[in-house]
Amino acid sequence: MNEIHCRINGTDYTFSFPGERRLLDVLREDLQLTAAKEGCGEGECGACSVLKDRRVVNSCMIPVAAVEGCEIMTLEGFRQTPEGRCIVEAFSDSGAVQCGFCTPGMVMAAASLLFENPDPSEVQIRTALSGNLCRCTGYDMIVQGVRLAAERGRGLW
């Protein structure tokens, strides 16, 4: 295909990259949207999580041609929204952040969950985060961060 059209953080883009180029590389290198990280490059760690049509996906697994006509949201866009601010603040207050490398992906996974389910149980939160590896926190405070975001953000989701 010749051109790829998509919307990223509310802005329309037209790309002419090789279609198999990874969305993650386009975001990080061409758009300097570096909140999404590469932790493994094979969909195991979730550090590259972004929203595709409001659902969390691994941007390292997506050829850029596959986002034709899609709406992509990275943390750079999401943090500007009330929902984004709510999760970022709740994570900051809960001790959910240590080294921070997994955190942007965690925030996006949490967003995807709360969009679907504004009042998740502990198991639902843990399931929603199960594709996002964290080596620092042991997860409990991240789970608390999501719960806090759900509570504080009532009506937002």
Binding site: P18, E20, R21, R22, L24, D25, R28, E29, E38, G41, E42, G43, C60, M61, I62, P63, A66
Partner: peptide, 17 residues
């Protein structure tokens, strides 16, 4: 979805699969 193919033929950051 690409979740198998993109793993099998992955290379490195900044490099095409």
């Amino acid at each position: 979805g690409g979740t198998d193919i993109m793993v099998r033929y992955r290379t490195s950051h900044g490099v095409l699969p």
